[in-house]
Design a protein around this nucleic acid. Structure first.
Lengths: 112, 112
DNA sequence: CTATAATATAAGTAAATTGTTATATAACGA
DNA sequence: TCGTTATATAACAATTTACTTATATTATAG
């Protein structure tokens, strides 16, 4: 019981950051690789990787590795309420489409 | 748009603490005064007051002052999703009933 | 094999968080 | 009015968080 509140708090702690919320909003439209998120959020790559790790540790994201890319996507299994939560976020469909129009993963060869 | 993510993040930040989640779970059954929460959670009075302030600043609680007591209750108006969020918390009906059975507010005269 | 791109991790730092104790404020009761 | 109860706030210490820069890891391309 005590333990339960703790692990649920960890979920909300993971969501309690505007950068991570923007990541969740983008991923609600589909999976994205790290470098695409770096481009979309204009933050440093280590910072994005660390945010993704937190979201993954909270059980909110899953990853899929292909070639040199790691694609992240929402994982609604462990926390079904997540669907409603991301639905309540500001819409970022336009930003997501902008990423797609450049070709998934393939336009990440920008200088770090 | 940027601003929006920030204020939503503040809500989840407020929920990202196990003590505050326990407070929300208790208040989901009805309003309680500060000293009742102090008794239920066995934490210091200043600590509880500070947690309540955070929840209130995030727009999740409202307060009602009567005599020397301040009663807090859930405020689902600004953030409708809150109803689903508290419903997903562990049940504390038993703890809440234990508080009520001692007489609302009236059994708070314990030594600080 | 080597250079490069994508990602992760480590170390360091500044800022935010959470508890504590001490004190202020305000209402009540004798 | 005086002492007590309920609550809030201030000041401080310990911990956690969120960046930064530097480096490690892994896959790919040539």
């Amino acid at each position: 019981m005590e333990e339960n509140f703790e692990s649920i708090a960890d979920v909300y702690k993971a969501l309690g950051d505007k950068t991570r919320l923007r990541i969740m909003a983008l991923l609600s439209h589909g999976e994205l690789c790290v470098c695409e998120l770096v481009g979309a959020l204009s933050m440093s790559q280590p910072s994005i990787s660390q945010h993704l790790r937190k979201l993954k540790q909270a059980g909110l994201l899953k990853e899929r590795k292909t070639a040199q890319w790691v694609y992240y996507s929402l994982d609604v299994v462990k926390f079904p309420l997540l669907e409603d939560i991301v639905r309540a976020l500001p819409d970022v469909a336009q930003e997501y489409q902008a990423l797609l129009s450049q070709g998934l993963g393939t336009r990440c060869n920008v200088s770090l």
